[in-house]
Amino acid sequence: MKMDLEVSEPIDFSSGDHQHLVRKAADSNTQIKSGQTYTTSPSEPQKTHRNTHSKTRERADTYVVQISDETTPNDSSNLANPFSDASVRRAFIIKVFLILSAQLVVTGAIVSMFIFWKSLKAWVLVNAWFTYAILPAFFVVLIVLACCGKLRRKVPANYILLGFFTVLQGLLLGAVSVFYNAEEVLWATAATALVTLSLTLFALQTKWDFTMLNGMLFVLLFVLIIYGILLLFIRSYWLHLLYAGLGTIVFSLYLVMDVQLMVGGRHHHSDLDPEEYVFAALNIYLDIINLFLFILQLIGLAR
């Protein structure tokens, strides 16, 4: 069988169009062979008929195929990705940073009350049940925000839950901060702000892809949790100092990874949905809060 290929209109080989052409060519050739009549007479009219039939078969066996390197399998996924539009990505980032800023302002205001209001500080030190009463509600709201995807995309339920979670987090931070001096808390706040700003700028301009470290960071976080549980029964200055340093490193890496997940672009894992702005803000907020706690512990141990 003879096939003449001419370049006329584009065909995407990744979608299997070329297989359809090959089958079509084979079927057409079979039909022509089965319908062809052979004669042995040397007459001139029959020779003309054979030439006409041969030209018709040549035209029937001629198919148009264009090989283009501009069409790749990733093009369809890029078109399906809503973040392929720069304006959608920009609006998403602005919304996340606005929500995050509001969370940090509310948290800072609550912690300031516990630091500078001496009566409240003394009351929390005497009534330890206050901290233990907040913990269950804190984890319930956190689990709801983390696991209920439809709920955290629904307005205004997502904002209400996030606001409630932020208030609970501020109360917990306030209950922790009463065990430190106001000066130590302020130094930890300034250090956390400086580290957060530096790591955010680093995550935005670096060519390194930290989103691929998700599995390794999860293992380090699990080790950190086990390490912290053991320290409840071990009183060692150096082990606590090592724990605070390790926690600072782990959540610094988490902060860089979550910023790159939010920004997306060239990073390997950037599969956030445009409606997941609450989830993105929650991740970065928790990274900053945990970073603050470990830096505060480092400062307290250093003094």
Score class of each variant (00 low, 15 high):
L261E: 04
Y254L: 15
G265Q: 06
K207Y: 12
M216I: 13
Q260L: 08
L224E: 07
L255C: 03
Y254H: 05
T196W: 02
S198M: 11
L204M: 15
L213E: 03
F251S: 00
G228S: 15
I249P: 01
L186I: 08
N214E: 13
D209S: 04
T192D: 02
S270N: 11
P274M: 10
S252F: 01
E276Q: 15
Y237D: 01
L221G: 11
L186S: 00
W208Q: 03
W208A: 09
Y243G: 03
L173G: 05
M262R: 02
Q205L: 09
I225K: 11
S198A: 14
W187E: 01
T206N: 08
V195I: 14
W187F: 07
Y277D: 06
L261R: 03
S236D: 15
D258I: 04
L172C: 10
M216L: 14
R266Q: 10
F222L: 14
V178C: 03
S270I: 01
E275I: 09
L217V: 06
L168K: 03
E276C: 10
G170E: 01
L255P: 06
E276M: 12
F251E: 02
V263Q: 07
A188M: 06
M212V: 14
I229S: 03
A203E: 00
F218L: 14
L173Y: 01
S252Y: 01
M257I: 09
L171F: 02
F233E: 04
W187N: 03
L231G: 01
M212D: 08
A188R: 02
M262E: 00
L224A: 11
G245H: 07
F210N: 05
L221E: 05
M216E: 03
Y243W: 10
L232E: 05
L239C: 09
T206E: 04
P274E: 01
S270V: 11
V223K: 09
L232W: 14
R235G: 11
L199Q: 07
E184Y: 09
F218H: 12
L246Q: 09
W208L: 15
F279G: 11
A193H: 00
Y180E: 06
V176L: 08
L204G: 02
S236P: 02
V223H: 05
V256K: 08
Y237Q: 00
W238N: 01
A188I: 06
T206H: 11
I226P: 00
H267P: 00
L172V: 13
V278K: 03
H268K: 13
Y227G: 08
I234A: 04
E184H: 11
L194W: 02
F202T: 08
T196M: 01
M216Q: 13
L220C: 15
I229K: 13
A182G: 15
M216F: 14
I226M: 12
R235F: 08
G264N: 05
L272F: 07
L204H: 14
E275Y: 12
V178S: 00
A190I: 13
M262T: 14
L253R: 10
T189G: 08
F218D: 10
R235C: 06
A244K: 10
R266W: 01
H267F: 09
T189Q: 02
I225G: 04
F210G: 06
F279C: 01
F202G: 08
L217S: 07
L199V: 13
L261D: 02
T192F: 01
Q205H: 13
G264T: 10
G215T: 13
I229D: 00
V278A: 04
V259R: 02
F251P: 06
L199G: 06
I249V: 15
V223S: 08
L204E: 12
